[in-house]
């Protein structure tokens, strides 16, 4: 069982600067991480992320979410209890620790005009025993 004190919480940012473009982010998990078990997406402009965002996410060269997976499905608002905001993905081995994100911005009538925004990815891993 994991407790908060043995969970590694990491934050990675991707800057979305132009509309209707794919941005790639490549990050590395903490070397003390053993299994990745959850993630969460937020933004400094949540409406843009909610309506315009979709992404593919790979960890250790294993596809977690396929291309066109909408960002809104990985977001949590204040209406969700803090302990339940993380999207659980099972226990994914750290392996080489490489996290790759292909974030795609797509125009949407409910989030126009486009303004640059930041996609913030939080990753939660269990620490090595």
């Amino acid at each position: 069982m994991s407790y908060k004190h043995n969970i590694i919480k990491e934050r990675f940012d991707i800057a979305v600067t132009t509309a209707d473009t794919v941005f790639k982010g490549e990050f590395e998990l903490d070397k003390n991480a053993e299994h990745l078990f959850g993630l969460l997406l937020t933004s400094d402009s949540e409406l843009h992320l909610y309506y315009r965002g979709s992404q593919k996410i790979q960890v250790n060269d294993q596809e977690l979410f396929p291309e066109d997976f909408e960002a809104k499905l990985l977001m949590s608002g204040l209406g969700v209890s803090p302990n339940q905001r993380v999207v659980r993905i099972g226990n994914v081995k750290r392996g080489n620790g490489k996290v790759e994100v292909w974030f795609k911005d797509t125009s949407h009538p409910s989030a126009t005009p486009f303004t640059p925004y930041k996609v913030i990815l939080y990753l939660f891993s269990t620490v090595k025993a």
Binding site: E46, L47, Y50, K72, L73, M75, S76, G77, L78, G79, V80, Q84, R85, V87
Partner: peptide, 10 residues
Amino acid sequence: PEWWFSGTRY
């Protein structure tokens, strides 16, 4: 209304 206020998790 803003998303963060009403936001749920799907």
